[in-house]
Simulated scan of single mutants.
Amino acid sequence: MTTNPARVMPDVANVAEAAAGRLDWVGMDEIAVPVRVAAPDGSLVQAPARVAAWVDLARADVRGIHMSRLYLHVDRHLSSEPLTPCSLRRLLRDFLDSHAELSTRARVSVRFDHLVRRPALSSANSGWKTYPVELHARLDGGEFTLELVTEIAYSSTCPASAALARQLIQEQFARTFPAGGPTDRDAVLAWLGSTDGIVATPHAQRSSARVRVRLAPGFDLPILDLVDLVEGALKTPVQTAVKREDEQAFALLNGQNLMFCEDAARRMQSALEGDERIADFWLRASHFESLHPHDAVAVATKGVAGGYGAASFD
């Protein structure tokens, strides 16, 4: 079948509806596309992503936007060039240029898992960890903003539980080695290595740090740098390959980094405040308690003018 060049196809999106009105955002969500992210060694890592693309509909007399234009821009940009602040800004600029008669602002969200190989704590092994990543970019009146979101799993050992466990161990020691009696060093050493000696252990749990940062202009996309910053502040990120020597090293890290959710939030807060690439931030430390069925949660923000408010809990 040949196409008649004189044939005009109808475009009902340009036909005004009776219920006219401006719309804040119109677009597409869950667009499947591959993205490429720069690794620390300069190579590019490809990952499947889901994208949301939006523009406003500023004209009340127009029924709809050009969805296909958004899709084609997403496909062309994200499939052909690495994710950077500059590439995302160019993408949004194309959104607006292709909707010049309809829209005044644009935004895009890109969600994917960033796969990173991590070394074991003590052994010569290594393994893969995934970090969920969200990028939220917006172009409004010539002002470009970019936010980076990630989530990091870590271990948290309760300081109160540790203190209570130490008290029980002390009491057991007093019963086993009463005052005034002979105390043999080898006997004490053997006792410390037995279940009779260490009668209680503190409770620990897998925990989650969700961090959302607004990036300052003039920097590359610091995905792994942000992950390393948060993991370095918490000191007990979950591991991949684990032999016995790695598990023992992890137990030592937990014992030396007892923390409530408040402690975890303040550690991350201090680390993020000292990074010049971060203009603003919101963070949430969630401890999925093993003691009870509810979570312990702490939230902190930088909260600069016009940024994240202290009441933000999303």
Rank of each mutant, 00 (worst) to 15 (best):
A162Q: 08
T157Y: 00
A305P: 10
F177H: 01
P34C: 09
I223Q: 09
V110C: 08
V51S: 01
V299P: 01
A32F: 13
I31Q: 08
S43L: 04
L57N: 00
Q205M: 05
V45Y: 14
F313W: 11
E134P: 02
V299N: 05
R76D: 12
V213Q: 01
L44C: 14
R22P: 03
R93F: 05
S68M: 10
G306N: 10
G274D: 14
A49F: 02
A49I: 06
D280I: 13
T3N: 11
V51L: 06
A187P: 03
M268K: 02
I152P: 02
G180P: 07
A200E: 08
L148S: 09
G42R: 02
A58M: 08
A271P: 07
C261Y: 01
R244V: 09
A216T: 14
L215T: 05
D24L: 13
R89D: 15
P293Y: 09
L70Q: 02
P119D: 09
L88N: 03
I65V: 07
R212W: 06
V55N: 02
F219L: 12
A204T: 00
P40I: 03
S109Y: 04
T183I: 14
D41Q: 02
R89W: 06
A296Y: 00
S194R: 02
T84P: 06
A39G: 13
A265L: 11
D61P: 03
G180M: 15
E247A: 11
A310W: 04
A165Q: 00
A13V: 05
L146M: 03
S87T: 09
R7P: 00
L258R: 11
T2R: 11
S155K: 00
E30D: 14
A204L: 04
Y308W: 11
Y154N: 04
T145V: 05
R36D: 14
P178Q: 07
R277Q: 00
D196H: 01
V12L: 11
D24I: 13
D275F: 12
T176H: 07
Q205G: 08
S79H: 08
L92P: 01
H66C: 10
P293D: 10
A311K: 15
V116M: 05
A160P: 01
R117P: 00
D113R: 05
D24N: 14
S98L: 03
E273V: 09
A204G: 13
L272R: 03
S126H: 11
R117D: 10
F281E: 01
R185Q: 09
D140G: 06
A264N: 00
I198C: 12
A58H: 10
A124Q: 08
D56P: 02
F173W: 10
G127A: 06
T183R: 14
A179G: 04
A311P: 04
G232A: 06
V15A: 11
R212L: 08
P222H: 10
F250G: 09
R107K: 11
Y131R: 00
V299E: 03
V297I: 15
P85L: 06
